Computed example of a mutant assay.
Amino acid sequence: MSKLPTTTRRCTNLLLEYIAGNVAVGEALPTEVRMTELGEGSRTAIRSTLAYFIECGLIAGMKERCLLRKPRPGDWFDVSELHSGTERLQQVLMERIYQRDLPPGAEFSEAELSRASGVSTIAVREFLIGFARHGLIEKKPRGGWRLCAFDPSFAQELGEVREMFELKAIERVAGLPPDDAAFGRLHDLLARHEALGAASAASHADFPALDREFHTFLIGLLDNRFANSLNDAVSLVFHYHYQWDKRDELPRNQYAVQEHMAILRALTQRDVPAALAAMRTHLRSSRTTMLDALRERESRAHND
């Protein structure tokens, strides 16, 4: 069997987890519709997963879906296989920026990103060349790359385009059928936000990764290549905010978690007008805080 796409491998692991705890040997697997919810995938992904189950000996065939044996550890895909090379590279770059290993003006090489992400230098170069069009990184004349600073006008323009796409994504939810897998994902995101909101203030340092996942999921509902491409720049500027003053980071994160929950609660209840209003509030506060931080930074630099 050919190598399964990343999304299908994730779907497979989720279904294996469900089967291990809820389906006895001899019992039938859930319906395809139910499996799209459990596996958070499309019907195409589910059918690829079923083909994988047949190959592993978990079921006899596409129509004979009774469980022949319980899942074994070797049936699951390793965590390292659940992320594509580009995803691993994005994660490494974003985390280094967020952790201040790469402040504005910092230089880095293709080789070091290749080692950290396990992605070939050729793939790293292609990713960086594509990402450079956003103006947030630039290639140095004698080799290597540099992380660029950005000004309030850049953040303002990006925020306006971001708002257009994310509000459209909220509207897209209104057209989804009640049994669409997206609602299972929305409930999961809401539960994770509620858990973070109830945790200690120090735990909110984990928010940027959840923030990126939340907005990336919404943008993904559009299935729009231009929106997906823009999301890389949005993540860098708004989600990992590498120019933000870290002193009030935790209160900012706590407030943003509450804003996310307002959006998610409205979406899980299919209350699109309330979700649109909550998203506008969130985008407005995010953009305002970003612009205030940039102006404060420029003011400090001028005074120094």
Rank of each mutant, 00 (worst) to 15 (best):
E157W: 05
T7H: 03
Q254Y: 07
I97W: 02
S2W: 09
H134Q: 10
T281V: 12
L176G: 01
H204P: 08
T36S: 08
M290H: 08
S42A: 11
G105N: 04
E160T: 03
C11A: 14
N13S: 11
L222H: 06
A266C: 11
N303M: 09
D78C: 07
I219D: 02
R225H: 14
D101G: 04
A155V: 05
V161G: 04
L4V: 11
L93N: 00
A199W: 13
F150A: 01
P178F: 14
K140T: 06
L176H: 03
G175A: 13
A106V: 04
L236R: 04
W145H: 01
P71G: 06
T281Y: 08
I263K: 00
D206R: 07
A132E: 04
E81V: 01
A209Q: 09
G57V: 09
M1H: 12
Q258L: 15
K246E: 15
V92P: 02
V25I: 15
E249T: 09
S299E: 12
T289H: 13
D179K: 14
A169K: 05
D271R: 04
F226I: 15
D188T: 09
V92F: 01
V161H: 11
A169S: 13
P73D: 00
P104D: 02
E40K: 00
G175C: 04
T86M: 03
R47H: 13
Q269I: 08
G26H: 00
V79A: 07
P104L: 04
N13C: 08
L291T: 06
D245N: 15
A106D: 00
L113C: 05
D211E: 13
G175S: 11
L128D: 02
R192K: 14
N224K: 10
M279L: 15
R115L: 06
T6S: 15
T121K: 02
L236D: 01
E194M: 13
G159I: 01
A111G: 07
F108M: 02
R133G: 10
L68A: 08
S120F: 00
